[in-house]
Design a binder for these strands. Structure first.
Lengths: 199, 199
DNA sequence: ACACTATAGGAACCTCGGTTCCGTTTCCCG
DNA sequence: CGGGAAACGGAACCGAGGTTCCTATAGTGT
């Protein structure tokens, strides 16, 4: 599942490629900091480029955001794959991935907003990357469970929910809202011990 | 800390009061279902009223939303207070409140969006209700801790974070995202057992 | 019943931000 | 070096949605 760009990559003029890169990078800076509501004009300005040029490279704001989001998901995939191949104990691998991915999201307002529910249409348009991530996560959980490091009823959806929930501690800055603490609580919650729930 | 309306309540004409009620109710229906992005025109239409009238009763969209939010927070406060006075075991009271409040949020898109981070300015404008809720929650936690029903390092902020995080399972409808399951995981996580965290 | 004012109604206004359009500039190739 | 296509710049366009404003209407007190 490649990008259209990947497929029929007939690299246009030299300055075009240069601008494409530059735009992507500046867009990342702007949107990561200000979220999806940042304006196209600002991206263009930061990239030292006219809006027209911006739109020549990305037909729509959504397309630009989607591209940025896709790159992040690729990082998630990488993190997960690396952990799986690292040979470290399954429980540690599991925790390491959650922490690493959280760290990525913490620096990217777009990710946060998408995971939190607004901009869900972006997530929907991701395609294969999404499934790939799911598969790898399933493997990660499975190993951790076999090692007795996480509760046996944990599913990939559970992990997804928790990670998405974790993002709220990043988007909100109420006093005492610290996502590392939040993550710590979550990790404790998925541990192997069976709960004592009375009812 | 009363509303301006509460304070200098000089009930105007009869139809005015009627419309005020009607608008509030219809606004609740519209915004609860569609979130903060629902349009003022739609609220007016649903209430069988012109936009002008709508704006006569609420000077601004934000004011209207704030009013709706405040009412919800009052419900949270009520739930908590009732649980504290119910005489049931502290651990159960604690869980009951989280479930009850979650149930309320689950039916209100505005709450969800506010708690999740967008619309945080609304939360900030709440005033005394916020502090009141915090105080009650602290008491709730304290009792549960003394009863040995929840981990001893749990703070009101922690509960806040978790509840906010829980909202993402309501705003997102990815397959497998079920807020009741999410809440169950969280409740297990705050239990009294000390975790086995290796690192 | 009447006048007087509070209230309703809804077209029009204004701002904001994504997108388009087209004249100008820059690169590339012969 | 010159011609032509590719790329650029940014003013102008446009729809969306909150808010205003002014005329019509309908309670209310005498």
């Amino acid at each position: 599942m490649n990008t259209v760009a990947d497929t029929l990559e007939k690299p246009q003029r030299a300055d075009a490629r240069r601008n494409h890169e530059r735009i992507l990078q500046c867009a990342r800076e702007v949107f990561s900091a200000e979220g999806v509501d940042a304006q196209m004009d600002e991206v263009a300005q930061r990239a030292g480029v006219g809006v027209g040029t911006l739109y020549r490279h990305f037909p729509t704001k959504e397309a630009l955001l989607l591209e940025l989001l896709r790159e992040r998901v690729l990082v998630f995939i990488d993190n997960t794959r690396n952990a799986l191949e690292s040979g470290q104990p399954a429980g540690e691998a599991f925790r390491a991935v959650l922490v690493a991915n959280a760290e990525v999201v913490a620096g990217d307002a777009v990710c946060q907003q998408v995971l939190v529910g607004m901009g869900e249409q972006l997530w929907a348009k991701l395609g294969g990357e999404r499934d790939q991530l799911d598969t790898l996560t399933a493997e990660l959980i499975d190993r951790a469970q076999r090692a007795g490091a996480v509760r046996s009823d944990l599913t990939p959806s559970d992990v997804g929910m928790m990670m998405c929930g974790l993002c709220t501690s990043m988007t909100r800055d109420a006093p005492g809202f610290d996502w590392r603490r939040h993550l710590a609580l979550l990790l404790d919650g998925v541990g192997p011990q069976r709960p004592q729930s009375p009812a």
